Amino acid sequence: MECPNCGYERQPQDSHVMEGVCPNCGIAYVKWKARQEELGTAENQATSLEEPDSFIIEPVLPIWKRVLRRLAAEPEKVDSVSFAGQALIYVAFFFWGWSFILGGIDWQGIGGSFLHSVNLPFHEFGHVLFSPFGRFMMFLGGSLFQVLMPLGLMLAFILQRRDNFAASIMLWWSGQNFIDVSPYIADAKYRSLPLIMGMGEESHDWGNLLRMSGTLDKAQSYAQQWFAIGVILMLISFCWGGWLLYRQFQRLREE
């Protein structure tokens, strides 16, 4: 018999040593094996208890579920002060957003808002940014950059800052920019809106865009579509921000 401990194989001249005992290291084969099995069982139990959850392999979720989980993620730490601040911001943007939604495509209400003056520099920069891509894109670039810039900030808040509430406000801002552009589109046929200093009617973005594309008679329809997109984005931002605040409120109650 070969010793399970030291590997010594019992020889005929080892007859003086009791059967079941290793002549080389002196262990009792049966007792040694029982002891090893006992130690192995205890070690396996301890390992299973100490194994962190990160070692548990979860099934791979579909992309849309992973995206929704990321968009619903809450901050690691929630305190009452930051929650109260976010709640006040939410209420302010909620009522401000509804003032744009209920006002419709009205240049006086939209253009008279101070936010129009905030959007204008981004609009003008869009013309410069897209000018290398031709005259059509130069005219379109102002409105295009105006609505895409807040969406870029939204992605930055989601992916880099991991601040979904701030991202929901950026989505609101993109929706407001769609609404901000809608009176400009509706005015394409008439070119009556005041442009920035030094620019005449020939510089009317949407007047030129729709004339170049032969769709000037559809100006009102396009304006309504841009306005509708803005309303939808705002409503999504309301639901998103409200859900995040509700989850934080639940955590605060539990803590």
Results as ranks from 00 to 15, higher is better:
74 E>Y: 01
71 L>K: 00
97 G>V: 03
81 V>W: 15
70 R>T: 15
99 S>P: 00
72 A>W: 09
97 G>C: 06
101 I>Y: 05
72 A>S: 14
97 G>E: 11
100 F>I: 07
73 A>T: 05
88 L>K: 12
96 W>V: 09
92 A>H: 08
97 G>Q: 10
89 I>E: 07
96 W>R: 00
79 D>V: 07
68 L>Q: 15
73 A>Y: 01
93 F>N: 06
72 A>N: 12
101 I>C: 04
98 W>C: 03
68 L>M: 15
85 G>W: 07
75 P>D: 00
74 E>T: 10
84 A>N: 07
92 A>T: 14
74 E>R: 04
87 A>F: 13
86 Q>K: 14
93 F>I: 11
95 F>N: 10
101 I>T: 08
100 F>P: 01
98 W>I: 11
100 F>W: 15
79 D>T: 08
75 P>A: 05
75 P>Q: 07
77 K>C: 00
100 F>N: 03
78 V>M: 07
96 W>M: 10
81 V>E: 10
70 R>S: 12
93 F>M: 13
80 S>G: 04
93 F>H: 12
85 G>A: 09
91 V>G: 07
91 V>R: 10
87 A>D: 06
94 F>H: 01
100 F>V: 04
101 I>Q: 02
68 L>G: 11
90 Y>N: 04
88 L>S: 15
69 R>L: 14
94 F>Q: 02
83 F>H: 14
84 A>C: 02
79 D>K: 01
100 F>M: 06
100 F>H: 09
78 V>P: 00
99 S>E: 00
73 A>N: 05
81 V>I: 13
82 S>E: 05
90 Y>G: 04
79 D>R: 01
100 F>E: 02
74 E>Q: 13
75 P>R: 07
86 Q>Y: 08
98 W>M: 13
73 A>W: 03
99 S>R: 13
84 A>F: 06
68 L>F: 11
95 F>C: 12
101 I>H: 05
93 F>K: 06
95 F>K: 04
96 W>N: 08
96 W>S: 09
101 I>L: 03
71 L>H: 03
98 W>E: 09
81 V>T: 13
74 E>D: 11
100 F>Y: 12
99 S>I: 06
89 I>V: 15
78 V>L: 06
100 F>C: 05
89 I>S: 12
80 S>E: 15
71 L>N: 04
72 A>G: 06
85 G>K: 13
76 E>Y: 10
98 W>Q: 07
80 S>T: 13
95 F>W: 14
101 I>D: 02
78 V>S: 03
69 R>M: 15
76 E>I: 03
80 S>M: 08
77 K>H: 06
87 A>M: 14
76 E>P: 05
76 E>F: 01
88 L>M: 13
82 S>R: 14
74 E>L: 12
79 D>W: 04
99 S>C: 02
72 A>V: 08
91 V>Y: 14
95 F>P: 01
98 W>L: 15
78 V>C: 05
72 A>E: 13
93 F>V: 10
97 G>A: 08
98 W>F: 15
90 Y>V: 01
75 P>M: 03
87 A>H: 05
94 F>A: 11
84 A>W: 05
97 G>F: 07
94 F>E: 06
86 Q>I: 01
93 F>P: 01
69 R>I: 15
89 I>P: 01
72 A>H: 07
83 F>V: 11
92 A>D: 04
82 S>L: 10
